[in-house]
Design a protein around this nucleic acid. Structure first.
Lengths: 207, 207
DNA sequence: GATCAACCTGAGCCAAGTTCAATTCAGTTT
DNA sequence: AAACTGAATTGAACTTGGCTCAGGTTGATC
């Protein structure tokens, strides 16, 4: 149980990583449906059919990107909060961690948020379904991360008692909603967004 | 300017409304990409090509649904807040209004939220582009609705001074994030969600 | 230098959205 | 009632883009 997907061994001339990078760029900028699978191949410098050596389908590649990003989010939450005892400070650290991302990771978050619904229904093919299940598990882990933080704060008396499940979903929803509209090239720097959301979360939860 | 799209007048045997209803059901349950355009036709009881008498494309139909829902949201905000002087109460009323929806409207919100990114880039065909531009304008109106409410509250001293633009986006993001996961058949009634979010918004904005 | 697995390709298949020319239908005119 | 009109509908064919297949190339290893 709790099986983390084993990344396929990267042979020395494997283009898997290059494909993932190119796909994140394309899917992130142009959108998944709007980008032609062949464009990704072109950008990597291989024929479109070569893609199928690494991914079963365009969707399989998308699901892989989503799983990797979820894994990163989960790890980041753990890293940001593990050494912080005070719930309010842990919450602040978690929010700051959520916005401490590179431009490339911004794209990955955007892709992830835009296709969450894919994780709902089952997939036909084996490998797609494996990625979907792994991603779903990670979604639950991330939700649990936030909910647990709230539960901890409530039982410690730092936060007023409320439905932690629901409030956790709300906090998470608030945080990730930013990825729908934020653009690194836009007028508002991420640091400013991070600060405002951090404050908003604390008020939402701790008051 | 400020051109509201004129709905094509419905001849007595027009199936336009029936198509929109069927499409909302299909797109909302199954997802836009996953539903075959021909399935919508089937459900209405016409051949797939007949759809093109009413909509230029599957996407044109989607954009129309989105525009109509945005119009509804904007109207609802106005209706809910216009007679409420106190900013805190107006905020509460606006949130309650946002969740005062039928099951069918839940689907429409879900569709809208899942395809906001469509409004970003321009469309190739005339009628699609017209719907897109109209929808974009409505998005701005809705954003302005919420931002203005915050500005009003801030200048009246009901809310502490903060970046109203950013905070407005956050509030709106929090509210609509619910539509990604809420299901009428789910364990949590919408009334409960509405109350929790209402409180959260007030704390976010007024404290 | 033979072998084997990883890696890659051109040709072509297929599903789903779309176009188009032709037809039916309901109501209006003469 | 016959002729006409525009809205509504259709079957057949076209287009696009993801995907399959059968086979070819590369390079590490023995």
């Amino acid at each position: 149980m709790a099986t983390r997907i084993v990344e396929p061994e990267a042979g020395p001339r494997s283009k898997r990583a290059a494909i993932l990078t190119a796909a994140v760029d394309c899917f992130g900028e142009t959108g998944f449906e709007a980008t032609k699978w062949s464009t990704v191949a072109e950008r990597v410098g291989i024929g479109q059919t070569a893609l199928y050596h690494y991914f079963e389908s365009k969707t399989h590649c998308l699901l892989t990107i989503m799983r990797l990003e979820l894994q990163r989010s989960h790890d980041k939450f753990t890293e940001a909060t593990e050494s912080v005892a005070d719930p309010v400070e842990a919450l602040r650290a978690a929010v700051r961690g959520a916005y401490d991302v590179s431009d490339h990771e911004v794209l990955q978050m955007r892709i992830l948020q835009s296709h969450m619904d894919l994780l709902a229904g089952p997939r036909k093919s084996k490998r797609e379904e494996a990625e979907r299940v792994a991603a779903r598990r990670l979604v639950q882990l991330v939700e649990r991360d936030w909910t647990h933080l709230l539960v901890r704060g409530m039982s410690q008396g730092s936060f007023p008692l409320r439905d932690a499940q629901l409030l956790g979903a709300a906090v998470l929803g608030l945080i990730v909603s930013v990825w729908r509209w934020y653009r690194p090239s836009g007028p508002t720097p991420l640091s400013e967004i991070s600060e405002l959301i951090e404050g908003a979360c604390v008020r939402m939860v701790a008051m």
